[in-house]
Design a protein around this nucleic acid. Structure first.
Lengths: 125, 125, 125, 125
DNA sequence: GTGGTCTAGACCACC
DNA sequence: GTGGTCTAGACCACG
């Protein structure tokens, strides 16, 4: 399980953690019962404040995605989170918008970006 | 030029303005030299405070996307930074890599992003 | 770190803050990683509105001179700003111009001012 | 008499004009009775709005630096302010102190300022 | 307690 | 009329 923070996006860290954990669980990359990194460990890995991790884990627990066992750690729950399709669409939209916005700062058009992506797709296939 | 704010996304208004202007420039919907809505006008249109518009325009000016002419208005800038093609492509590549990484950590594939882009392209034509 | 505002020069406060911080960082008087005064603190010290400080810090962050960590403070970035020699020269020129302008309002000539400065130099050595 | 505007400094044009005229008078480059460029002429030369020149001239007239003669033009005034020598020197001292403080907060030393002044003197001779 | 965003409204500078 | 600067003060996000 590898989490990554985007420091430039303006999206709060704890939200990024929540979203990524949820997706990983929904996709099965994190299996029910599997242990997550400890709060301290993850905080160190991501170079953020432990409280931020605590907050993310707490919200995920409230949603039933995670379960904490006092003294032993935090684990993936047995109930799969449902990912809201609408929410998901908005997320993708936001990413695309940011991609285009950043690209345009350097004078790239939508077609330039499209070309770059197609090229990448071909390279990977 | 039509701007719209998403009041529920949690993304700050000024950031939404910035990104939409950049995207419009990337699309060619805003041509170099073209005048943008005045600060007060846009503020009224979007039902927000003029200072919020000022802030967005200001950041866009710092980045070189817009140019302001005291007393007459705000305009799309002419100067696209002249960097050589190789450097340009390295930059685009870097941006794409970064955003794909972010997309993938949310569970999106290259195809998802590609699809989102194509949709934008169609919407604008 | 001691900042000073010149209230008579007509140069905006936020610009003066930006310039002085940049110089201090470039000179090493502010070391990378060092914390700056908090927004509220500096506002009180300079007797200005916190938003004015926010604005200065914000621009410095965009330029990469400062880094802010939500909830903990504002710090000097790890990338040194290069002070454009031209920029620096312009700044000195501006100061000299103002010195002469103010002096001339009272009928002093360039030589009068020069004399005053030389005297001061001797007194200090 | 050659005026130049610094468009990047953030200092208002009319203020730059005022200061440069004052400096020129202090240098003796503009002698009492000498005619200044007409409003329109200077506006064209500096590529600014005539109203901006009008404003600068008006303030200089209020201060007694210039005198306008309706229909014939604007001229350097004859009146030197009369204050006693002691008071005069206290004033000069105060101005110098103030500007040195400002210079030092931008990282300039007394010698830097002195150098700048000497350069002016040479340029004008 | 830190910075971030936004509003409301004043006054200035410039065309 | 345009944008630029600053204040005062509210509320939120984060650590």
């Amino acid at each position: 399980m590898k989490l990554q923070l985007d420091t430039k996006s303006g999206v709060p860290y704890y939200r990024q953690i929540i979203e990524q954990v949820k997706v990983a669980v929904a996709h099965g990359r994190l299996a029910p019962g599997e242990q997550l990194p400890t709060v301290r460990r993850l905080a160190v890995d991501l170079s953020i404040n432990p409280n931020t991790v605590v907050r993310a884990y707490r919200e995920l627990e409230i949603e039933g995605v995670l379960e904490t066992q006092q003294g032993s750690g935090t684990f993936v729950g047995h109930q799969r989170p449902e990912i809201d399709d609408l929410e998901r669409h908005r997320l993708l939209d936001q990413i695309v918008t940011e991609l285009l916005a950043r690209a345009s700062s350097y004078g790239f058009t939508l077609d330039d970006v499209l070309g770059g992506l197609v090229q990448r797709k071909e390279a990977s296939s």
